[in-house]
Design a binder for these strands. Structure first.
Lengths: 117, 117
DNA sequence: CGTGCCTGTCAGAAAAGGCTGACAGGTATC
DNA sequence: GATACCTGTCAGCCTTTTCTGACAGGCACG
């Protein structure tokens, strides 16, 4: 059980993880969700944050594979999206970083790309 | 030798490390410096980046404790700042993140703080 | 003394990220 | 039908980060 991506993550993956976790709010969100899985609105109240904003942070974390959200139907029919943290594990060393750095997708070539279309 | 801050980093420390490493340029800088320590101007040429910009990235990495710079005097008297990577090591797990999240210095309270002074 | 290479910093433009209020849809209860 | 929850998205503002060009100083070589 529990897949752990430990050893050699791809550059883009590590980049998403690090930039996702490198934010005070998102770190606290992970902390809150680790204590108990929760749905968006309740979590927003708990940590005192607007829903749209929390929503944005959550999908940033989810895009990085650090949390997962499941849309569940409560008994009374209400649709609520529960989030919980993934058992992720990354080792952060110079070697790992250097290895990942080689496989970074250049997202910085918006030159003569729009026109080609 | 080589101090490794592995187990339970403070929130602010982890925050600095993650946001420092969560950037494509800075990952490449670490990669380049791991191969061989280098001074600013040469490194700038090597990775094709402006000196002022590289300078900024370097001091961001240094502030996070991931690289160290030493100002050395070459034989011909020129002052050159050599950078090299630190043997850092961080474990990234939900538990570590949650633990760090509790010790985050609220830098976001510029409310009734100026007046108190 | 001009040229070259080193160091650093500064102001200001450009891009990215964070944040808010308003809106739309859904289902259940009074 | 009005209220009260839940979900999501969108335009627009504001702050932070990223990036560039120009400038300062230092030391050595021709």
């Amino acid at each position: 059980m529990a897949e752990v991506p430990s050893p050699a993550p791809t550059g883009d993956e590590l980049l998403k993880v690090l930039s996702a976790l490198g934010n005070p709010h998102r770190m606290r969100i992970v902390a809150a969700l680790l204590e108990s899985r929760n749905y968006v609105s309740a979590l927003a109240r708990e940590i005192g944050m607007g829903r749209p904003l929390l929503h944005m942070h959550l999908q940033r974390l989810e895009a990085a594979g650090l949390v997962v959200g499941t849309l569940e139907l409560a008994e009374d029919g209400k649709a609520m999206k529960y989030f919980e943290v993934t058992p992720f594990f990354y080792e952060l060393t110079p070697h790992v970083v250097a290895r990942a750095a080689m496989t970074i997708t250049e997202t910085a070539d918006r030159t003569a790309k729009e026109e080609a279309k």
